[in-house]
C-alpha cells in the first residue's frame, strides 16, 4: 500500500505544479494575491520567473491567462473557487472557454470546509458554474494522490480545465500502489448491489468509511468516486443504476448543478432509477471549524450512513 497521506489538495496541487514544471517549460502560474493560500507559493519559490502575481484582480488574471495561452504558454491561474469561478465567470467563458484556450483554472477553498471564513468564501456553486460552460473539463480530486494525477492529466489535455482544490487537510483514500488517474473515468472503491453511493472530493473517503459501516449492518453499498465531473463517466453510472437500482450522491456543493445533477442527468435519460442528492441543500454556509461544519452538513461517515439508511427505508 502506498503511504496514507493527510494533506490538503491545494498543497498537493502546488507540489504537482513544481514537479511538472521540471520537464514542461511552458507552464506558467498566475495567482491573485492568494499564493500562500492556494499553495501556488510552492511553485513561486521554485520558479519565481514563471510565477506572476496579478494582484486582487481575478477578471484580468483570466484574460492575461488567455493571452499567455494564445502564445503557447500553459497558464495555471489560481484563486479561491469563489473568486475564480464567481467573480471571473464571464472572463473564463468568453476569453478562455469560447476560444478553447489552454488555460487551467484552480479554485481553492471550495466547499463548506473552507471553515471559519464563512459564507462569502465557501464556494458551493463552482462546479455548477464551470459545468455549464462548453469546452470546460471539471475535476474535483478526492485526495493527495488524485490531485497529483489530476494536475498531470489537466496539463496533458489541450484545452480549458477547472480543478477544484480544498483547504482542509484530508486523509488519502487512493492508497493502492497501482493507483492511476484516468481523466473522465469513475472509480469503484467498494462493490455492492444494494445501493450506489456516488461521491466527489473529500466526501469520497467518508463514503468509503460509511460503506464499510453499512456492510456490518448487512447493507452492501457500492461506492463510486467521480473525480471528473465533466465529462462524466456515463458507463459506470448506468451500470450502477442497472445493478443496484438506487443511487445516492454526496458532494460538498450546492445540490443544484453539481455532481448530483450531473449523475441525475445521465441516469434519468439512460436508465432511470430512484436517486437522492445529498449536499448543501440550496443554502449558504456559515463560519465554524471545517470539521464541525462537515459533520453538521452531513459529509462525515455517520452522516452518510444515516442518509443511506433513510434512503433505503
Amino acid at each position: 500500500m502506498a503511504e496514507l497521506v493527510v494533506k490538503a489538495t491545494r498543497e498537493s496541487f502546488g507540489e504537482a505544479l513544481c514537479e511538472l514544471a521540471k520537464t514542461n517549460k511552458d507552464i506558467v502560474v498566475l495567482d491573485a494575491d492568494l499564493a500562500a493560500a492556494t499553495k501556488t507559493s510552492i511553485f513561486k519559490k521554485e520558479y519565481p520567473d514563471r510565477f506572476f502575481d496579478c494582484g486582487i484582480a481575478e477578471g484580468n488574471m483570466m484574460g492575461v491567462a488567455a493571452g499567455l495561452a494564445s502564445c503557447g504558454k500553459i497558464p495555471f491561474a489560481a484563486s479561491f473557487a469563489m473568486f475564480a469561478t464567481g467573480r471571473a465567470f464571464e472572463q473564463i467563458r468568453n476569453s478562455i472557454a469560447y476560444p478553447k484556450l489552454n488555460v487551467k483554472i484552480a479554485g481553492s477553498h471550495a466547499g463548506i470546509s473552507t471553515g471559519e471564513d464563512g459564507a462569502t468564501h465557501q464556494c458551493l456553486e463552482d462546479i455548477a458554474i464551470m459545468r455549464a460552460i462548453p469546452n470546460m473539463t471539471v475535476i474535483n480530486p478526492a485526495d493527495h494522490y488524485e490531485m497529483l494525477g489530476a494536475v498531470k492529466a489537466a496539463l496533458e489535455l489541450d484545452g480549458p480545465v477547472y480543478l477544484r482544490l480544498g483547504r482542509l487537510a484530508v486523509p488519502s483514500v487512493n492508497n493502492n500502489d497501482d493507483y492511476k488517474f484516468e481523466l473522465g473515468k469513475g472509480v469503484t472503491l467498494r462493490d455492492g448491489d444494494d445501493v450506489t453511493i456516488v461521491a466527489t472530493g473529500l466526501v469520497v473517503r467518508e463514503a468509503v468509511l460509511a460503506a464499510d459501516e453499512l456492510k456490518k449492518e448487512g447493507i452492501n453499498a457500492r461506492v463510486i468516486n467521480i473525480h471528473t465531473i465533466k465529462p462524466i463517466d456515463e458507463d459506470i453510472l448506468i451500470k450502477a443504476a442497472k445493478e443496484t437500482g438506487k443511487i445516492i450522491t454526496f458532494e460538498e456543493h450546492n445540490v443544484i448543478g453539481g455532481l448530483g445533477d450531473a449523475v441525475a442527468s445521465v441516469v434519468s435519460q439512460k436508465c432511470p432509477v430512484l436517486l437522492k442528492k445529498c449536499g448543501v441543500q440550496d443554502k449558504f454556509g456559515y463560519s465554524g471549524p471545517a470539521k464541525e461544519l462537515l459533520e453538521i452538513f452531513g459529509f462525515t461517515a455517520p452522516g452518510i450512513v444515516k442518509e443511506v439508511k433513510s434512503f433505503l427505508a
Binding site: 484574460g63 492575461v64 493571452g67 464571464e90 476569453s95
Partner: peptide, 12 residues
C-alpha cells in the same frame, strides 16, 4: 476583456 488578453500576449 481583450485588453487583459493583450497584456498576457505582451507578457509572453
Amino acid at each position: 476583456q481583450g485588453i487583459s488578453a493583450a497584456c498576457g500576449m505582451a507578457l509572453a
